[in-house]
Simulated scan of single mutants.
Amino acid sequence: MNPSLLRQLWAIVEATQANSLLNLDDAHLVQSILGQCHVRQPLNSEEKTLLSDYLYSRLNLIRDLASDRLAVPV
């Protein structure tokens, strides 16, 4: 997976509302982020599979980051 795609993925995670990241089930969360990635940069089937696997392996981290964003007063 190329670094540019990873940066884009994490930028999307950071830009997504924390409540959305916490309230979606695993499958819908992964699909939502993949969909946003695809809008920014069309993905081929191999990239979708790699990103999907990567996202599933990072769901706890994504939700932890979202929880931290909710806990910090702005």
Rank of each mutant, 00 (worst) to 15 (best):
Ala15Leu: 04
Leu9Glu: 03
Leu6Ser: 09
Pro3Ala: 13
Leu9His: 00
Gln17Ile: 08
Arg40Met: 14
His28Leu: 13
Leu5Arg: 04
Cys37Phe: 04
Ser45Glu: 15
Val30Gly: 10
Thr16Ala: 06
Ala11Ile: 08
Leu9Ser: 03
Asn44Gly: 09
Gln31Leu: 10
Gln41Val: 02
Leu9Thr: 10
Asn23Ala: 09
Leu29Tyr: 07
Ser20Leu: 15
Gly35Glu: 05
Thr16Ile: 01
Asn19Arg: 07
Leu21Glu: 01
Ser4Met: 12
Leu5Gln: 02
Leu5His: 01
Glu46Gly: 06
Ile12Lys: 03
Ser32Lys: 09
Asp25Asn: 15
Asn19Val: 05
Leu21Phe: 05
Asn23Tyr: 11
Pro3Val: 12
Ser20Cys: 09
Ser32Tyr: 07
Pro3Lys: 15
Arg7Ser: 11
Leu6Phe: 03
Ala11Asn: 14
Leu9Trp: 08
Gln31Tyr: 00
Leu34Val: 02
Leu29Asn: 03
Leu43Ser: 06
Pro3Ile: 15
Asn23Lys: 12
Leu21Tyr: 03
Gln8Thr: 07
Ile33Asn: 05
Gln41Thr: 11
Asn44Pro: 03
Leu9Gln: 02
Asn19Trp: 07
Glu46Lys: 14
Leu22Trp: 01
Asn44Cys: 11
Leu24Trp: 12
Gln31Met: 08
Ile12Arg: 03
Pro42Val: 07
Ile12Asn: 02
Gly35Pro: 02
Asn44Arg: 07
His38Met: 03
Gln41Phe: 05
Leu6Glu: 13
Val13Leu: 14
Arg7Met: 09
Val39Ser: 03
Gly35Ser: 12
Cys37Lys: 01
Ile33Phe: 06
Ala27Gln: 15
Glu14Asp: 15
Ser4Cys: 03
Asp26Ile: 06
Leu9Asn: 02
Ala27Pro: 11
Leu29Ser: 08
Ile33Val: 07
Leu43Phe: 01
Arg7Ile: 11
Asn23Glu: 12
Leu5Thr: 01
Leu43Ala: 11
Ala11Asp: 15
Ala11Lys: 08
Arg40Ser: 14
Asn19Pro: 00
Ile12Tyr: 04
Glu14Leu: 13
Asn23Asp: 09
Asp26Thr: 10
Glu14Ser: 12
Arg40Pro: 00
Gln8Cys: 04
Leu9Asp: 01
Ala18Leu: 00
Glu14Phe: 14
Leu22Asp: 05
Leu43Tyr: 03
Asn19Gln: 08
Gly35Thr: 00
Gln41Leu: 14
Glu46Met: 10
Pro3Cys: 13
Val30Lys: 05
Leu43Val: 06
Arg40Leu: 13
Gln36Glu: 15
Cys37His: 01
Leu29Trp: 06
Leu34Arg: 04
Ala15Phe: 03
Leu22Gly: 01
Trp10Ile: 06
Val39Leu: 14
Trp10Asp: 13
Asp25Lys: 15
Gln8Asp: 05
Glu46Ser: 10
Ala15Val: 01
Val30Arg: 04
Gln41Glu: 12
Gln31Phe: 02
